[in-house]
Nucleic acid binder design. Structure first.
Length: 786
RNA sequence: GGUCCAGUAGGCUAAUGGCAGACCCUCUCGUUUACACCGAGAUGACGGAGGUUCGAUUCCUCUCUGGACCACCA
C-alpha cells in the first residue's frame, strides 16, 4: 500500500478545480425561472492571514453551498473587506508609516498598492481550505466599483432625507485624534482617586464626589434623586462650583443614585456617556473645555493648556490648598479605553453624519422577523439589539483610508451639497463645488471624513450583484456569518436593504459560533490562537473541515487536535475501502436480481440518504455528517464489507453481480454525501473510479443522491427486522469470540433460535461466512468453538 | 443589572417524552486476501430541587455553575 500523500492529492484537485472552472458562476445560466441559490459571502477583513475562526465558519458555510450546488446552481461570490481600521493598521505596519503624517491621497494610494500585493496570498488560504467560492466574481470593499455603490447609497439616502449631519458628542480618542466606533472600545479596570469636593448651595456646603475633578470648569448642573430627602430643599436652587465660582442649577433626576457617593452627581460636558444623555434630556447648554488633541482650552480657566492628567493633578492641589476636599479614597472602577492605543476615551462634540434608524426600530424588527434565522434564537439577539438602540447610526469617521463622504458644505449659507450620482466615485477633496443655493463665489468646503466601513459592507449583496450585471437581486438565499457581528453586519445590511428597497436582504441567515480553547474564545489578543495553516499542513484541509462539521450551527466548538485526527482517519479509511472495493469490482450498470442481504443493506442506505438530505435541507450539516459517517463506518465498513467479501471472492456470477451493484452504488452515495464536507478526498475517489461511468467532470457537479428504487420496499418494517437481527447476531458472535479470547476468524458452530433461523433463512449463507461458522444449528443462542 | 445559550462518562460531543449513541483516554483480545494512521470487545455519564406525566436526560418552574452579547461604572 503506497503512502497516502494528502498534500499532493489536495493540491492536485485544487488546481483541477481552478483550471476546469468547476465553481465559476455562469451568468448566462440565469434564465427566467431558473432558481439560483445565492450566498452573501462574508468578505474577510484583510489583516494578515486566515485565523482558525475563519477556517471554522467558512467551512461551515461551504458545506451548505456544496450541498446546494449538488441540487442546482449557486451564486457564491468572494470579496475582501479592506477599508477598515484593521487594514489601515496593517498597511502602517508593513510600510512603517503613520497615516496621520500623510495626505489622504498619498495614504490611500499606499493602501491600494499594499493590498494589491498582499491580498492574493491572503485569499490563497481560502482556496487551500477548499472554499468553493467563485474567486473571479470578486469585489474588494475599497475598489472603485464598491466606492461608487457605497457613495450612491449615501447620496440616495441623503436625498431621501434619511441622512443628516449634526454636531454631536461622539466617542473620541485624543491620542489618535479621531472619533471611533463603539465596537473599538475595551474595558479596563483602574484604580482611581475618588474625591469628595465642597460645592456651595444655599450658603452651605454641598458635598459631591467625583473621579474627574478636572471637569469642574465644565460642570453645568448637579443632579439629586427626587426621592432623596436630604436635598429636597435645594432643588431648583443654584450650586456654586468651587474654584471656578460659576453657578449651576440643582436638578432632580432619578438617575442619581442615593447610595453612591454623597448622592449628589455633577454633570459635565462631557465626562462620559451618561453626561451626554443627561444633557440631552435636560436640554442643558454645554461648556466644552477639551480640545481634540487632549488639552484644555481657555474655558478651563487656570487649567488652560494642560493635558487631562496634568489638569487633574493641578486642580486637586488647588482644591487642597483652599481646603475644599473633605475625603479622598481610592476605588477601582472600569473605564473605556481605545483598543488600539489604550488611551481613555473622551466625548467631544464634532460634526458627524448619521443615518436615521431610531425612528424605525419597529420596522427593522419586523424585517428581521421575515428572515429565517438558524438557529432560531439568534433572532432574539438581533431584536434585543434593535430594541436597545439609543443613537442613530454614525457613519462618519475621521480617518484617511476609507470611502470619502461625497459632500461639500457652503460656508456662507451652510447648505450641504452632495455629489450627483453620475460623478461617482468621487473624492470631494479633489473637486471644487460652488453652492447652487446662495450662489456664493467661494468654493464650498469639501467633507474630509470618510464612511465607516460598515456603511459599505452593509451593501455586500449589492456589491456582489453588480459583478454579474445585477442578474441576482435581493433577497439572496443565504447570509452566513458569526454571531459577534449580528448587531453590526447583519443589522446594518437589513437596515440598508430596508431603506433602499424596502426588502429583506436574504431569506435565510445561518450563524456560526466561535472556536474555543479550554472554554474560552480563541483569539489572537488572548494568545490562545492556533493557526489553521499549520493544521492543514499536518492533517490536510479535509481533516480540518471534518472537524468543523462536528458542531451544530451557532454552537461554539472546543478545538481538539484529536478531532482533526479523526477527520484524517476518515480520509484514510474511505480511500482504503474504495481501493478494496474497486480492486475486485466489475461495473454493474443495471440493477440485477438483488441478493437478499444486498437488498436489505441498500434499504439502510436509502434511510441514510433520506435522513442526510433532510438534515442538510435544514442546514444541519453536522447531523448529516454524523448520519453518513456512522453509516459508512458501522454499516458499510464494519459489517457489510465483511459480509459481502466472501461473495465477491467466491460467489456465483449472480451473487457477484448483486454485490457489485450494491457496492458501487452505496459507495458512490457515501462519497457524494461526504463531498460537501471533505471535497478533496471525495474528488480523488470519484475521479479514479466513478468518473468513467458517471461522466461528469467533478463530483462537486454531480447530483446529490436520491434513494434507490428497490424491490419489495413496502415491507420495510419486516426488512428492518431482518437486517437488525443479522447485525445483532454478528455482533453477539464477535462478543463471544472476544470474551473467549479467540480470533474474530476462529471457526465455530453457531446455534440460533428456530425463530431467528426462519427470519434469516435467505441470509444464512452470508451469516455463515461472516461469522466463520462451519455450521448453523437451531437451539438457544450459543457459540461453539471448534 | 438585562437578554440569550449551555450544563450528558476522565476529556470533547450526539440524539431522544419510554433501552442515552459516537470519538479520544483507560483495560482486554485479535493480524493469510481494504485498512496498525487497523479491527473486535470491556469499563464509564444526563449539575441540584420541585412540578406536569403511566413514564422526564428531554417539557415547565426555581436554583447552582459556565459562556456570549448588551448596559452600568459620580
Amino acid at each position: 500500500m503506497p503512502e497516502i500523500n494528502i498534500k499532493e492529492i489536495e493540491e492536485k484537485w485544487r488546481k483541477y478545480w481552478e483550471k476546469e472552472k468547476i465553481y465559476a458562476f455562469d451568468k448566462t445560466k440565469i434564465k427566467g425561472k431558473n432558481k439560483i441559490y445565492s450566498i452573501d459571502t462574508p468578505p474577510p477583513t484583510v489583516s494578515g492571514e486566515m485565523h482558525i475562526g475563519h477556517a471554522f465558519s467558512y467551512s461551515q458555510q461551504d458545506f451548505i453551498v456544496r450541498y446546494k450546488r449538488m441540487n442546482g446552481s449557486v451564486f457564491y461570490p468572494f470579496g475582501t473587506d479592506d477599508n477598515g481600521l484593521p487594514t489601515e493598521r496593517l498597511v502602517e505596519k508593513i510600510n512603517n508609516v503613520k497615516s496621520k503624517n500623510m495626505s489622504r491621497k498619498e495614504f490611500i494610494e499606499l493602501c491600494l498598492k499594499t493590498l494589491k500585493k498582499i491580498t492574493p496570498e491572503f485569499i490563497e488560504d481560502w482556496k487551500i481550505l477548499g472554499i468553493s467560492a467563485d474567486y473571479n466574481t470578486y469585489y474588494s470593499t475599497i475598489d472603485k466599483n464598491s466606492q461608487k455603490i457605497s457613495q450612491e447609497s449615501f447620496v440616495e439616502l441623503f436625498n431621501k432625507k434619511q441622512i443628516y449631519k449634526q454636531e454631536f458628542p461622539s466617542i473620541w480618542c485624543v491620542e489618535c485624534q479621531t472619533s471611533i466606533a463603539q465596537a473599538e472600545l475595551e474595558d479596563k479596570e483602574q484604580n482611581t482617586l475618588f474625591s469628595t469636593i465642597k460645592f456651595k448651595a444655599d450658603g452651605k456646603d454641598l458635598l459631591i464626589a467625583t473621579t474627574r475633578p478636572e471637569l469642574l470648569p465644565a460642570c453645568i448642573a448637579v443632579f439629586v434623586n427626587p426621592k432623596d430627602k436630604r436635598y429636597k430643599n435645594l432643588v431648583g436652587k443654584k450650586a456654586k462650583v468651587p474654584v471656578f465660582n460659576h453657578e449651576v442649577p440643582i436638578l432632580e433626576d432619578s438617575s442619581a443614585d442615593i447610595e453612591k457617593g454623597t448622592g449628589v452627581l455633577m454633570i459635565c460636558s462631557y465626562g462620559d456617556k451618561f453626561d451626554v444623555d443627561a444633557i440631552n434630556r435636560h436640554k442643558l447648554n454645554v461648556k466644552i473645555i477639551l480640545n481634540q488633541d487632549g488639552t484644555l482650552n481657555e474655558k478651563a480657566g487656570i487649567l488652560k493648556g494642560l493635558r487631562i492628567k496634568e489638569a487633574r493633578k493641578k486642580i486637586l492641589e488647588e482644591l487642597e490648598k483652599h481646603n475644599l476636599i473633605t475625603e479622598k479614597k481610592h476605588i477601582s472602577n472600569n473605564v473605556n479605553i481605545h483598543d488600539k492605543c489604550g488611551t481613555e476615551i473622551e466625548f467631544i462634540p464634532t460634526a458627524q453624519w448619521f443615518i436615521k434608524i431610531l425612528d424605525k426600530k419597529e420596522q427593522l424588527i419586523k424585517q428581521g422577523k421575515k428572515i429565517k434565522w438558524y438557529p432560531e434564537y439568534m433572532f432574539k439577539r438581533y431584536e434585543n439589539w434593535v430594541k436597545g438602540l439609543e443613537w442613530d447610526w454614525n457613519i462618519s469617521r475621521d480617518r484617511h483610508f476609507g470611502i470619502p463622504i461625497p459632500a461639500w458644505q457652503c460656508e456662507k449659507c451652510k447648505n450641504i451639497i452632495v455629489a450627483d450620482k453620475e460623478e461617482l466615485p468621487i473624492d470631494p477633496l479633489q473637486v471644487k463645488k460652488k453652492c447652487p443655493k446662495c450662489k456664493s463665489e467661494v468654493n464650498a468646503t469639501p467633507e474630509t471624513k470618510v464612511l465607516d466601513t460598515w456603511a459599505t459592507s452593509s451593501l455586500t449583496p449589492q456589491l456582489a450583484s453588480s459583478l454579474i450585471d445585477n442578474k441576482i437581486i435581493i433577497p439572496y438565499s443565504l447570509r452566513p456569518q458569526a454571531h459577534d457581528i449580528i448587531r453590526t453586519w447583519a443589522f446594518y445590511t437589513i437596515t440598508k436593504s430596508y431603506l433602499h428597497e424596502n426588502k429583506i436582504p436574504w431569506e435565510d441567515i445561518v450563524i456560526s459560533g466561535f472556536v474555543t480553547l479550554q472554554g474560552e474564545k480563541m483569539s489572537k489578543s488572548k494568545g490562545n490562537a492556533i493557526k489553521p495553516q499549520e493544521i492543514i499542513d499536518k492533517y490536510g484541509a479535509d481533516a480540518i473541515r471534518y472537524w468543523a462539521a462536528s458542531s451544530k450551527l451557532g454552537e461554539d466548538l472546543e478545538y481538539q487536535e484529536k478531532d482533526v485526527i479523526t477527520g484524517r482517519k476518515f480520509v484514510t479509511k474511505i480511500l482504503n475501502a474504495t481501493n478494496f472495493v474497486f480492486m475486485n469490482l466489475n461495473y454493474q450498470e443495471k440493477m440485477p436480481k438483488l441478493h437478499e442481504t444486498d437488498r436489505l443493506f441498500l434499504i439502510q442506505l436509502n434511510k441514510a440518504i433520506s435522513q442526510a438530505t433532510q438534515a442538510f435541507d435544514n442546514y444541519n450539516y453536522s447531523q448529516a455528517k454524523q448520519i453518513v459517517d456512522s453509516f459508512f463506518w458501522q454499516i458499510f465498513s464494519d459489517n457489510y464489507l465483511e459480509i459481502v467479501k466472501n461473495r465477491v471472492y467466491n460467489g456465483t456470477k449472480e451473487e457477484k453481480a448483486s454485490a457489485f451493484y450494491a457496492l458501487y452504488n452505496s459507495l458512490l452515495a457515501i462519497v457524494k454525501m461526504m463531498a460537501p464536507i471533505t471535497p478533496y478526498i471525495t474528488e480523488e475517489i470519484y475521479q479514479n473510479h466513478f468518473k468513467k461511468h458517471e461522466k461528469i467532470n467533478s463530483i462537486h457537479l454531480t447530483k446529490w443522491p436520491d434513494e434507490l428504487k428497490l424491490p419489495g420496499i413496502k415491507e420495510r418494517k419486516e426488512d428492518d427486522k431482518q437486517w437488525n437481527k443479522l447485525l445483532e447476531i454478528i455482533t453477539k458472535v464477535r462478543q463471544e469470540k472476544s470474551l473467549a479470547k479467540k480470533s474474530v476468524k476462529a471457526d465455530i458452530i453457531l446455534h440460533i433460535s428456530g425463530e431467528d433461523n426462519k427470519l434469516l433463512k435467505n441470509l444464512i449463507q452470508d451469516l455463515k461466512t461472516v461469522t466463520a461458522s462451519k455450521d448453523i444449528k437451531e437451539g438457544s443462542f450459543r457459540v461453539e468453538f471448534l
